[in-house]
């Protein structure tokens, strides 16, 4: 009568990601959702020329931050001790999850790099001042001819990423509320001082 199902999970192996991986995940979540919203708003939001200029500059700075962050995340999850044992899941689910996660990383890289390509190929060459701290150079060997291709790639990859994020969130919520298994808690935010 004292304890019920709770202790079962607690005695099993800890399948949670390291605090660093969890922190970087949620940081990336906020950044990518913010960038998608900003990217839409700066084009369709009806802002005037000056405001729009600032929004584009902000989008570029946060975009490079996202590029740095995805590289940091790839490094962090490969660090010794960072990768936990897998959560209990049927093999097909594990394969689908691995595929989706790989695609999330790949698409984030494609969106960020194609954004850099857009900036580098733009006819209106506006220097990328990373949060007004320093200038990020354009990619070498890129000409105006690549502008259309780069823009289309950036646009399509961004929408694909948005769709994949929706799938990812849906799957996570399914584990949390339908399966009620340990998958959600692997990446659930944890606050210092709380277990």
């Amino acid at each position: 009568m004292t304890v019920e199902g709770e202790t079962v999970g607690a005695e099993g192996p800890d399948t949670r990601w390291s605090p660093l991986v969890v922190a970087l995940h949620w940081l990336a979540a906020a950044l990518l959702l913010g960038l998608l919203a900003l990217g839409w708003f700066m084009v369709h939001g009806g802002a005037d020329a000056a405001r729009r200029f600032d929004l584009y500059q902000l989008h570029k700075s946060f975009g490079f931050l996202a590029l740095a962050l995805v590289l940091a995340r790839l490094a962090a999850r490969r660090a010794p001790g960072a990768a936990p044992p897998p959560a209990p899941m049927p093999p097909w689910e594990r394969r689908a999850a691995a595929l989706a996660h790989g695609a999330l990383y790949a698409l984030t890289l494609v969106v960020a790099l194609s954004g850099w390509l857009v900036v580098s190929a733009a006819i209106v060459a506006i220097p990328t001042r990373f949060f007004d701290l320093f200038v990020i150079p354009d990619l070498p060997g890129v000409g105006h001819a690549q502008f259309e291709t780069a823009t289309t790639l950036h646009f399509l990859a961004a929408w694909l990423l948005a769709g994949l994020i929706a799938l990812h969130v849906g799957a996570a919520l399914k584990h949390r509320f339908v399966d009620r298994d340990a998958v959600w808690s692997r990446m659930a935010p944890r606050w210092p001082g709380r277990r």
């Binding site: 200029f53 600032d54 001042r129």
Partner: peptide, 15 residues
Amino acid sequence: DVGSASFNDYVRSAV
């Protein structure tokens, strides 16, 4: 003055 500091910098620049 085109309405924002960073936009002003761009308009003033060599380009």
